[in-house]
């Protein structure tokens, strides 16, 4: 229940299609991440769900209700903005209960809910402060508090962690995920950071140029990318995609993830260009027939720049894509075509 579904949602800015017939569904209580590079329409999609923008065509349902034409306040959603959108002149407490005051919730209930939310987010000591007296992470928590005190079944988040430093981002990632599961909220979370998508999501909708590139679990996106774009967007370093190598065939691209490649004495010849040591592993950047190719090696890599190496991998690690459309080709169909 209380799923969100988008059907053929389109948003035009003049002639540009910012969101181009996007459809997806999120089951109740799921953590859905809208992922994509900047300008792919993910924030616009979120704003369409929130009702902050009007859609050009299509339908949005939240729960059983068609909310396509409803104003934001009647969609029963809460939202956390990238800039947090805290009211700078109001105290933390007043910021959190802002919506409750608008809806004339009785002072007693307001106080109880505030105390509960503040305790949940560790804000109890800070309630009298102004937002400018808080750190970035604390401001983030206040914005979260304002969203969850509304007790709406759906919460929308627009790149909420992009203003935090790396350490804090990791902490907040875990915290938001735990909170979402504890409260059973359906979350739509916009980000351009594939790590956030991989670590937090139940379901990832990858967007590109306003359309859905792939919709699936993090596992599916990583393990069976539907397109070359999906393959290269997710994973650091991205999947190696090569044209014109043995095993690919005419009109096909061969993809293989850096961690599936072995450096050895047999296989495809290449030249080492540089080695990045990351601690647990190293990334060896090579060139194969003029194309860049990354290999992930455990611990220190013994290879040195300029060295000739040979690269090999297991056949089940190979992803095949159509060179024209960029679409994934199943190995079975690819083989069948080869035989024919």
């Amino acid at each position: 229940m209380s799923a969100i579904s988008l059907r053929d949602v389109t948003k035009l800015w003049g002639n540009a299609r910012a969101v181009d017939s996007v459809s997806f569904e999120a089951a109740a209580g799921r953590f859905l991440v809208l992922l994509g590079p900047s300008g792919c329409g993910k924030s616009t999609t979120l704003r369409l769900i929130a009702g902050l923008e009007q859609l050009s065509s299509g339908r949005i349902c939240i729960g059983d209700a068609d909310v396509t034409g409803l104003p934001p306040a009647r969609r029963r959603v809460s939202m956390v903005f990238q800039s947090y959108a805290l009211f700078p002149h109001l105290s933390v407490a007043e910021n959190i209960v802002f919506g409750l005051r608008v809806r004339d919730v009785a002072p007693r209930e307001r106080g109880e809910r505030l105390a509960k939310v503040a305790a949940l987010l560790g804000l109890t000591e800070l309630l009298e402060r102004k937002p400018s007296q808080l750190s970035g992470g604390q401001q983030q928590r206040v914005a979260l508090g304002r969203a969850i005190i509304a007790q709406t079944p759906v919460c929308l988040m627009d790149e909420p962690l992009s203003n935090l430093d790396a350490q804090l981002r990791q902490e907040m990632r875990r915290e938001i995920r735990a909170l979402q599961q504890k409260l059973g909220i359906t979350m739509i979370y916009v980000t351009h950071d594939q790590t956030e998508a991989m670590t937090m999501a139940d379901q990832v909708v990858l967007l590109r140029d306003g359309h859905v590139e792939q919709d699936g679990t993090p596992d599916e996106l990583y393990g069976r990318p539907a397109t070359v774009f999906a393959a290269r967007f997710i994973g650091t370093p991205p999947m190696n995609v090569l044209a014109g190598v043995p095993g690919a065939g005419e009109g096909r691209l061969l993809g293989v993830r850096p961690e599936d490649v072995r450096l050895g004495v047999e296989g495809l010849p290449g030249t080492v260009e540089s080695v990045e040591y990351l601690g647990a592993d190293s990334i060896v950047s090579c060139r194969v027939g003029g194309q860049p190719f990354n290999v992930r090696v455990a611990r220190h890599a013994s290879a040195a720049p300029g060295e000739a190496v040979r690269l090999s991998w297991n056949t089940d690690a190979v992803h095949l894509f159509d060179a024209q459309t960029g679409k994934r080709m199943e190995r079975a169909t690819a083989l069948a075509q080869k035989v024919a």
Partner: peptide, 14 residues
């Protein structure tokens, strides 16, 4: 005044 303040208030029903 950042427009996001108005949007946040709109979502809260102000």
């Amino acid at each position: 005044i950042p427009p996001s303040l108005g949007e946040a208030a709109a979502i809260e029903g102000a």
